[in-house]
């Protein structure tokens, strides 16, 4: 950055030019205090994050184990497990990806490669940026009325996945558009010059070259979806599900729902379960984010 190279404290004393700050009678103590505050502002939130992780690990220690991961919910805190929630979250993620990826990437391709600058296009663009700011719980109300009731899908896995897909759609579209924008236009032009049509260019040149970018955006969106609780609560995901989801129409629970359920119980023993759920959920979102970084490094080189 340019300000790094500025001679802020340059020492050409001999020429008689005053040092920066000297004219206004700098009080070093005050300035050091300001710098300290700035650094502190960065450290405090990270320390809070550290406290969050440490306390979750500490509280969950007696519960976290193979039994917890493979157990079913129970009225007794010490024998309750998270398997149906884990399976539910995995199924939700897969279905959400299956719905949101074609819709989101398709919309991004349309806006970047096909759309002409007209009123419809700007309507779609304004709409997407506004959708990104709609609180997630309102997607839950949409899902409740449209998927659960109007379409008669009930409080099922597919209702939950469809709701989450709509929720992450703006994010998938925005990240995919950014990835598409990184493709140099010379690549496109070279392909057109060889006589290819738009679809062929897209399929053989553009998509392969921005695939890592699109993939990272999709995974980041899924990492957000996996932690979403409010929309699922609103559409009425059940908290006591003792079976694994086996079809699109089956009742389901998910890790964040299970955490919410455990932490809302008055009995203190369930706190350990909630903490263990938190550790599992954070591990899952952490793994998805880690996958992103790995993809960026790994596939980024080829692009």
């Amino acid at each position: 950055m340019s300000q790094e190279s500025l001679p802020v404290t340059a020492p050409p004393r001999a020429s008689g030019i005053p040092r920066a700050g000297e004219l206004e009678g700098v009080r070093p103590a005050r300035h050091a205090l300001f710098l300290a505050l700035c650094v502190l502002a960065l450290i405090v939130p990270l320390a809070v994050l550290g406290l969050l992780l440490a306390s979750a690990l500490h509280v969950s220690a007696p519960r976290l184990g193979w039994e917890f991961l493979t157990g079913y919910p129970s009225r007794h805190a010490t024998s309750a497990g998270i398997l149906p929630a884990l399976a539910g979250s995995a199924a939700l993620l897969t279905l959400t990806a299956g719905l949101a990826v074609p819709l989101g990437v398709g919309a991004a391709i349309y806006l970047e490669e096909y759309a002409r600058p007209n009123r419809l296009t700007s309507l779609i663009e304004v709409n997407i940026s506004n959708l990104a700011g709609v609180p997630s719980i309102l997607y839950g109300l949409l899902g409740l009325e449209v998927f659960v009731r109007a379409l008669g899908l009930g409080r099922s896995l597919i209702s939950g996945a469809a709701t989450l897909a709509l929720l992450v759609l703006p994010m998938v579209i925005m990240t995919s558009r950014e990835a598409l924008r990184t493709v140099p236009s010379s690549l496109r032009e070279a392909c057109y010059a060889l006589g290819a049509d738009r679809w062929t260019t897209l399929r053989c040149v553009i998509l392969p070259s921005c695939l890592p970018g699109i993939l990272t955006g999709v995974i980041l969106s899924l990492a957000r979806a996996v932690g979403e609780t409010a929309p699922l609560v609103t559409i009425g995901a059940l908290t006591y599900v003792a079976v694994l989801p086996d079809s699109l129409g089956s009742a389901f629970t998910a890790i964040p729902i299970q955490i919410f359920n455990w932490v809302s119980r008055p009995q203190a023993e369930f706190r350990a379960n909630a903490a263990a759920g938190v550790v599992v959920l954070l591990a899952l979102t952490g793994a998805l984010n880690g996958l992103c970084i790995w993809l960026r490094v790994r596939l980024g080189r080829r692009a």
Binding site: S55, I259, A274
Partner: peptide
């Protein structure tokens, strides 16, 4: 920090 699910933050607020 932005990637932490909000139910996790809620649990943290209540229990810690």
């Amino acid at each position: 920090l932005a990637g932490v699910p909000t139910v996790v933050y809620g649990t943290f607020a209540l229990t810690v």
